[in-house]
């Protein structure tokens, strides 16, 4: 078995075993931390598709994270206040059903990624980074100045949303929902990476002119990847909102975009389990160093610098080494 496969399996099992053990011993806080790891990892799985496979350095993935969050927030807000979202052509009262919320989050973030991708993917390099950042900030200010949905203060959802047959208020049960979705996200990105589409996407990153010469349009390939990427991050946003039972405009802030990107880079760009490793490391550092110093992010910054300078493959890359050629 390849070394990376073993590391991946260890991460997948570890992320499941730790909260289960915490459940048995009654350490609720550890379950919550694990749930955050799973959700942030899912957001990073989304970005990793665009950034890792496609080389699209999106500094605006907070847009999809936030849209997913607000999809949950707005639907649940109307449902808990018995205030229909719209009454024509039929009365839609909002919903507390996660399954419906997820579908809406996926659609909304996918549409946003399509529009933003159409407008930004014509650019590259620094312009692309700035353009995606600009869209993220636009949405941030939009929601800051939208009083109906809490404006700057955001809004609280008093009860976690429902999932058929699951008590979502039980931390371990909600964790399992997030874990299953993370695994699904990883499965999707694994299949995509080795599909014809993934091949074209990775080729477009390395040599777009060559891709055109064999009759494939890099722009369209990138756009499709960007949409899928945004959708996955959007779903993570809906879960994060449900975990916190709160949505606020900081979900859209550029710091959020930066954080998701840091997870990808720490874990290992384009590595299948890079986002999981990155998110786990990030949350551990936040937990341990956050207790030591308020300036724990400075340590994360230093670590990021070390990874970028000396360990380009991130955590997974340092442990598993360079990818080997296969046929």
């Amino acid at each position: 078995m390849r070394r990376e496969t073993i590391i991946n399996a260890a991460l997948a099992i570890g992320l499941l075993a730790i909260p289960l053990w915490a459940h048995v011993t009654g350490e609720i806080f550890t379950i919550t931390l694990s749930t955050r790891v799973a959700i942030l990892a899912l957001a990073a799985v989304g970005l990793n598709l665009a950034l890792g496979l496609g080389g699209l350095i999106s500094f605006g993935h907070a847009a999809y994270f936030g849209l997913g969050g607000y999809a949950m927030g707005i639907l649940a807000f109307h449902a808990q206040n018995y205030d229909p979202i719209f009454t024509w052509p039929f009365v839609f009262a909002g919903t507390k059903q996660m399954l419906v919320i997820w579908v809406v989050a996926l659609i909304v973030s996918g549409l946003a990624a399509f529009v933003i991708g159409m407008l930004t993917l014509r650019t590259s390099g620094a312009y692309f980074i700035m353009a995606t950042l600009a869209f993220g900030q636009m949405l941030y200010y939009l929601f800051v100045s939208w009083p109906k949905y809490g404006g700057e203060d955001g809004m609280s959802i008093y009860l976690r949303n429902d999932f058929p047959g699951v008590n979502t208020l039980d931390p371990i049960q909600f964790f399992l929902i997030c874990y299953v979705l993370l695994m699904l996200g990883i499965f999707v990105s694994w299949r995509i990476a080795r599909s014809p589409f993934g091949l074209a996407l990775q080729a477009s990153r390395q040599n777009a002119e060559r891709v055109e010469t064999v009759g494939i349009t890099p722009f369209r390939i990138r756009l499709a990847a960007f949409v899928i990427s945004g959708m996955i991050t959007g779903l993570a946003g809906a879960l994060m909102a449900d975990l916190n039972r709160f949505v606020g405009p900081t979900m859209f802030s550029w710091q959020t975009s930066g954080e998701i990107m840091i997870l990808v880079i720490l874990g290992g760009v384009a590595r299948l389990y890079g986002p999981v490793a990155g998110a786990a490391l990030f949350i551990l550092l936040e937990h341990w160093l956050g207790g030591v110093s308020d300036y724990w992010l400075a340590f994360v910054g230093a670590l990021l610098l070390l990874v970028v300078l000396f360990a380009r493959g991130g955590l997974i890359g340092s442990l598993a080494g360079r990818e080997v050629a296969h046929d």
Binding site: R191, I192, S195, P196, F197, L199, A200, G215, I216
Partner: peptide, 20 residues
Amino acid sequence: VVLALQGAQGTSYHFFRAVL
């Protein structure tokens, strides 16, 4: 070479099949 082939075949939007 597979990349060139799928360009010719127009199969670049297959997302779930393992290309190799």
